[in-house]
Design a protein around this nucleic acid. Structure first.
Lengths: 232, 232
DNA sequence: CCATGTGAATGTTTTCACAGCT
DNA sequence: AGCTGTGAAAACATTCACATGG
């Protein structure tokens, strides 16, 4: 897997020579592109569950997801056999299986750095908690912000971030700082033992191996779509 | 190019059999993955320009971007020859060239639908205008929101969206509605002649060919990173 | 029959490596 | 000497198509 731009920086393969007896799915690396599709599979399967749809074929899922049935079957095959021939997939079972693979069957605490407009919107967003994430600490550099209450959390000085993350066992960080501070914030998170960073700042972060970064970059998304717009 | 999940739905190739005399770059399709990298190239080149760095080699750019030099050279080669052997790329020239390719050398009006917390944060975001986008109209379904002022725009009833977009020649839409209304909002935008949709709702939109969709999905991004987190 | 899981084929993207220009 | 632009190779990802099993 590549590192950087639109590929996400990734942990290195942890294949060791002695692991020759593990099942295939665990020997080879699973492509990151597959991992990135799984959350959407889970989301769709959950709506089926909620709609009392107990099972679905790869064909039906493919239709809902806008992908091919073969791709869904191939993606799942990296992890095991979840379907029943002639029947399809049990939606509830598959939600549980993928959730387990992605480690979503627990709640993850998250540290959020940067509480300007964007950071506050993120802090107040109600969509994270039902999705296995709980914002557990807020950090800012600006003395005006420090000490303020956002939701039921107090904004702490950024200098306390590494100690706090390490002490609380927080492995996920969200960066919503101005771009000039994004890299140093990432470094503080790394010092605190971060393993996953969701980066809202329009900057390519340099992080060590073992830290995954995903970019949230609406401006770039818009800027790439204009290429296809036809007519003034 | 695939359609759907993590690939973005795309316009179909407009290759016609009679176009055999066009230069190579215009004959074959340019991969969408390349198009999606260009905005980040522009952003980086702009910071170089602003820092009075007049030229840069693919090697230097690669280092800043976290990609390989070969990839940058290959990506640019789809569009022409922008470098000077032995010297590298003129940063200002390349910014202008890529901006022109992406049609960023103009201002694009954008229609925003959904003015809950998220939509208001988007409406107030100062980062779009300097990046070629201007939020030009706001729409909501909720009568409580309709008529309210956000920034210097009034929230209009969603029913007026198609006519407004068509009348004003707006080709870009942002969906920030609750997920239950995302698909119907997309359809209104399609009725209004939309060609590019930035979708913040956690839903796979069904749109006709010729409409590009990109997802902004921080929850999925987080959910895919937990796979790599090692240790509880 | 129906639909999975998967080898094999195909298609796409990245990287290598170097000829050629400045 | 330094660095681009690009064929050719390699790596990666998707799709086909079918044997297999409920």
């Amino acid at each position: 897997m590549g590192s950087g731009l639109l590929e996400s920086q990734q942990v290195s393969a942890q294949r060791s020579d002695w692991s020759t007896t593990l099942p295939p799915a665990q020997i080879g690396d699973i492509p990151d592109i597959v991992i990135r599709r799984l959350p959407v599979y889970v989301r769709t399967l959950k709506t089926l569950c909620d709609g009392q749809v107990g099972s679905a074929s790869s064909e039906q899922l493919a239709e809902m997801l806008g992908v091919t049935a073969a791709q869904i079957r191939r993606d799942l095959s990296y992890f095991g056999k979840f379907g029943k021939q002639g029947k399809g997939y049990d939606t509830r079972l598959l939600v549980e299986a993928i959730s387990h693979i992605l480690k979503l069957d627990r709640q993850w605490p998250v540290a959020l750095a940067g509480l300007g407009n964007l950071g506050r919107a993120i802090a107040n967003y109600r969509g994270f908690s039902p999705s296995s994430f709980q914002i557990a600490a807020l950090f800012d550099r600006n003395p005006v912000h420090i000490g303020q209450q956002v939701g039921d959390l107090e904004i702490l000085p950024i200098g306390e971030l590494p100690g706090f993350m390490r002490h609380e066992g927080i492995h996920i960080g969200i960066i919503a700082t101005p771009k000039v501070h994004a890299q140093e914030t990432a470094e503080l998170m790394v010092a605190g033992g971060v393993q996953a960073i969701l980066n809202y700042a329009p900057v390519i972060l340099k992080v060590p191996e073992g830290v995954t970064v995903r970019e949230i970059d609406p401006v770039s998304a818009l800027q790439s779509m204009t290429y296809y717009i036809d007519e003034a």
